[in-house]
C-alpha cells in the first residue's frame, strides 16, 4: 500500500469485483498478478471467464506457467514489458463497447500508465479499480527538460535526459502518469544532499 497525504496522488483502494460488467480487462505486473488471483477468489465462478488479463512484465517460463494455472479460466496474455502491455491494452480498447470494467494492479507506474491510456477512450479514472503491489518506484518527469525518468527508487535522482539532480516532489500528474522532479540545487549549485533509496 502507498500511504500518502499528497492531494494530487491517486488513492489505490484495492481490487474489488464489479459483478455486473460483461467483460473485465485487467492489466498487472508480476507482483500485481497475486492481487488478481485474490480478486478472482472474491468473485463468482464466471467472473474469471469474463476476464482478459494482460501481464505486462518479463516473466520466466516457470512464472508464466504458474500465472496460467492461477488465473485460469481467464484469457491470459503475457506481454514482455509495461509499454508492450499498454500498446496491447489500447488495441483492445479500440473496439470495446460500454459494459467493460478496467482493473490495474502493480507498481504505481503501471497503474498510472493504464489510467493514462484509458483516459483517451473516455474511461474516467475513478471507474478504474486499482491496487498497488510491489515496488514503490516512481516515474518522474523533469520539470525543466520535460524528460521522463523511469523506475526511480531514490530521492534525489539524476534526470536521465538533462542530467540535473532532481528533488522528487510529492506532486503527481495523472495526465503525465508521473511525479514532478525539480532541480534540487538551483539556488546553490553543487549543494546536493545524498541520494536516499526511499522508493524501493
Amino acid at each position: 500500500m502507498t500511504i500518502s497525504t499528497i492531494k494530487s496522488r491517486p488513492i489505490y483502494p484495492g481490487l474489488s469485483p464489479d459483478l455486473n460488467a460483461r467483460s473485465n480487462i485487467i492489466v498487472c505486473d508480476k507482483a500485481g498478478a497475486a492481487a488478481v488471483t485474490e480478486l478472482f477468489s472474491r468473485a463468482d465462478a464466471t467472473f474469471a471467464k469474463r476476464s482478459t488479463v494482460f501481464i505486462a512484465d518479463a516473466l520466466q517460463e516457470t512464472e508464466a506457467a504458474t500465472a496460467r494455472k492461477d488465473l485460469a479460466p481467464a484469457t491470459l496474455e503475457i506481454l514482455p514489458s509495461l509499454s508492450a502491455g499498454i500498446v496491447r491494452l489500447r488495441e483492445f480498447l479500440d473496439n470495446a463497447p460500454m459494459g467493460l470494467r478496467l482493473y490495474a494492479a502493480g507498481t504505481e507506474p503501471l497503474i498510472g500508465s493504464v489510467v493514462q491510456a484509458a483516459a483517451d477512450y473516455g474511461i474516467d479514472h475513478l471507474s478504474i479499480r486499482t491496487e498497488h503491489r510491489g515496488s514503490l518506484m516512481r516515474r518522474v518527469q523533469c520539470v525543466h527538460c520535460k524528460g521522463f525518468t523511469e523506475n526511480v527508487t531514490t530521492n534525489p535522482v539524476t534526470c536521465s535526459h538533462c542530467g540535473l539532480t532532481l528533488f522528487v516532489r510529492d506532486h503527481y500528474s495523472r495526465r503525465l502518469a508521473a511525479f514532478q522532479g525539480v532541480c534540487i540545487d538551483a539556488e546553490n549549485p553543487g549543494d546536493v544532499p545524498p541520494m536516499e533509496a526511499i522508493y524501493q
Binding site: D18, A21, R22, S23, G99, D124, L126, S127
Partner: peptide
C-alpha cells in the same frame, strides 16, 4: 446492471 460505471 449492464456494467456501466457510475461516473458515466
Amino acid at each position: 446492471l449492464q456494467g456501466w460505471p457510475q461516473e458515466n
